[in-house]
Simulated scan of single mutants.
Amino acid sequence: MRITADETPGLDRALALYDAVGWTAYTRDPDRLARSLAGSHSVVTAWDDDGGLVGLARTVSDGESICYIQDLLVHPASRRRGVARALLEEIQGRYAHCTFLALTTDAAGTEDAERSHPFYRALGFRPHDDLRLAAFGYRP
């Protein structure tokens, strides 16, 4: 596996990865995905030995005080192989001076939460309540 930073994959490869994980909010509007990737503070990608895109993480950040993990996705065929960990560790290493935030849509008690919450905890992330933070959202 090869990790690259700030090398945005081609739109066709990105669409295939987002589609493979079922993130249709991005795949329904390819131009929106292209703009999202281009507007990211950082894009870190994982590639298999055959040159296939197997993972992607992107951040929204000021680069100094806060780093928000916007997307973290791994192709289903490549899960449980350290891809997500490698992506996040690359970001954490580059922005070690920042506070990191991640918002997951995996509600407590769901199958996805059973997988993702322990993963984030293992990398030092804590629920907002534990850090005395509150998270708010608005979706038009």
Score class of each variant (00 low, 15 high):
W23L: 11
R58N: 08
T27Y: 06
V74F: 08
T45D: 08
A122M: 11
S42M: 10
P140H: 12
A122F: 07
G10W: 00
S42F: 02
G52V: 03
A102Y: 01
H97I: 09
A77T: 02
T104N: 05
W23G: 06
A122T: 11
D106T: 12
A134Y: 11
H41R: 09
A16F: 01
A5Q: 13
V44N: 14
H41M: 07
A57V: 01
D49F: 00
H75M: 02
G52T: 07
A96Y: 03
L15C: 02
L53V: 02
R13E: 04
Q92K: 11
F119W: 10
P76N: 13
Y120K: 08
D130W: 12
L123P: 08
F125N: 07
Y120P: 03
A102T: 03
F100G: 08
A107I: 04
R115P: 03
W47F: 04
T4K: 13
D130I: 06
R132K: 13
R80N: 10
P140Y: 12
P118I: 08
R126F: 04
G52K: 08
R80L: 03
P9G: 02
H41E: 12
T110A: 09
S42L: 10
Y95E: 05
D112Q: 12
V44K: 15
S116H: 13
L33C: 13
A5H: 10
R79G: 04
A20T: 00
S65T: 08
A34R: 14
R13Q: 07
R139T: 15
A38T: 08
V83P: 06
V43Q: 10
G52M: 04
P118E: 14
T99G: 06
L53Q: 02
I66G: 04
I66A: 09
L123N: 11
R58M: 02
L72Y: 06
A16R: 00
R126V: 07
G137S: 15
V21R: 07
R139K: 13
D106R: 08
L88W: 08
P76L: 14
G52W: 01
H128R: 11
H128F: 03
D6L: 01
E64L: 09
A14C: 03
L131T: 15
S36F: 00
G82F: 04
V83C: 05
V21Y: 04
L103F: 05
D6S: 06
G22F: 07
A102W: 02
L131K: 15
G124K: 06
L56E: 07
D129N: 05
T104A: 08
L37Y: 03
A108I: 01
A34D: 15
L73I: 06
H97Q: 15
R121G: 10
M1H: 10
T27F: 07
E64C: 06
L33G: 12
V54G: 05
